[in-house]
Design a protein around this nucleic acid. Structure first.
Lengths: 228, 228
DNA sequence: ATATTTGTGTAACAATTATGACAGATTAAT
DNA sequence: ATTAATCTGTCATAATTGTTACACAAATAT
């Protein structure tokens, strides 16, 4: 177990190295690797293992029948993948999971995870907490999609980004986006030119200023108004 | 504890009456009642209790700043409310919870729930399973919203309803909607007239036939095509 | 350094949906 | 049975967004 590094993994972080070592004693698992573009899991396929991304990064996408794609999430190591679906009634992947980098993924069978719960209550608590956070994430995504206009979605995204940055950097009116315009359009589920148009208009209206991925908020109140 | 009936509650169903009685021994809780229209919990308020709807029904809504509302879910007793948010990092209600009927709700403090986990592993498993199912539900909602056109949303909704009905009623091409047109429009996050127009058009195109809440599918393949 | 790929700004036009409004149908209440 | 409330079908108009297309900028690879 020495060669597996779980540091930074939300469902392991509360546990010491010694405790993790103990946790994995007599537990079956396997480790697979994937290269960029590989499909790690397909939307609709059964989820029988607790999969933890040990190295690299993946994206999750939802694919409609006509092929239109919406990116749900970008995940970087170390994080569990679709952990909420392991114990669900209908345990199928809700999304495609695609490697965006070279990846190393550990897979622990469902029953072995149950053993681990029994072995260490702290692990169990972390697991519940992580899944709860996950649900909140989905809820926020729903909130984003609930906003009808593209300007509103963008305003929500920027205000959210500003808030996150505020913790590290109080009183700032700037933040750096983690997506380019094309990715952002996908994230919102809108067309790229439409997003570009909205950005242009909001810059003309002196609400924001975007340079590359750097966003500067000029009129915060106007952003708030766009949410509705 | 005799007066509390948890039968049908997803996080209690696997437990016998005797076991539930044992589970609640030395556990603090309170029971409140609400009448139709009462706000049970406000979007943004902290979630410190495991709330279980013992009797009646509630709806959960997301409210944007301008007052536009999207119904997320209708919940009928016996079910937990926002159970996924009890153990999350940021434990705030993501939605308004509003009584749609006379309601009785039991509230168990977070720490007491932890005690209950320790006491009964079966309860814990049910809890995890329920939250997992919840996540799946949100994921499906996201999928619905991912579909851009109203006709597509409607097609998805109808095909889903047909599938659910298929279990009880194999080979059928009919099902009964659980929402009226106004509620359906809210559920989709679209305007009511736009939905009505789409229904009209789909009836003219001989794809479906809707009478009151009874939906008859005439051209299933056409419905599938609308998903994209 | 140059070529190739990827990302961005913009435009005209088409398609879809929201808005607000109204009449008729249905359901619930008394 | 009658009234009141809610739901449904429909319309014209406005607003928003998608589509397709193209030129240019930026990043990456060779």
């Amino acid at each position: 177990m020495k060669e597996i590094d779980f540091s930074g993994c939300p469902i392991m972080s509360s546990l010491s190295g010694e405790r993790i070592k103990n946790l994995f004693e007599d537990i079956e698992f396997k480790i697979n690797t994937y290269k960029k573009g590989d499909i790690v899991a397909r939307q609709g396929s059964p989820c029988k293992y607790l999969n933890i991304l040990l190295a690299g990064s993946v994206k999750t996408e939802m694919v409609a029948e006509n092929g239109s794609v919406m990116t749900i999430e970008n995940i970087t190591a170390v994080r569990p993948l679709a952990s909420a679906f392991l114990f669900a009634e209908n345990n199928i992947f809700p999304v495609d999971v695609i490697a965006t980098d070279f990846c190393r993924i550990i897979s622990i069978p469902r029953d072995e995870v149950l053993k681990m719960f029994q072995k260490d209550a702290g692990f169990l608590e972390s697991y519940i907490k992580y899944n709860s956070n996950k649900t909140q994430f989905l809820s926020t995504r729903l909130q984003t999609l609930n906003i009808k206009t593209i300007k509103g979605k963008l305003a929500f995204y920027i205000l959210e980004g500003l808030n996150k940055n505020l913790v590290l950097n109080p009183g700032t009116n700037k933040f750096r986006m983690d997506r380019n315009q094309t990715e952002l359009a996908k994230y919102f589920g809108v067309s790229r030119p439409a997003l570009a148009r909205c950005i242009s208009e909001m810059e003309e209206e002196n609400i924001i200023l975007i340079e590359h991925k750097e966003v500067k908020v000029i009129n915060r109140a106007a952003l708030q108004n766009l949410l509705g």
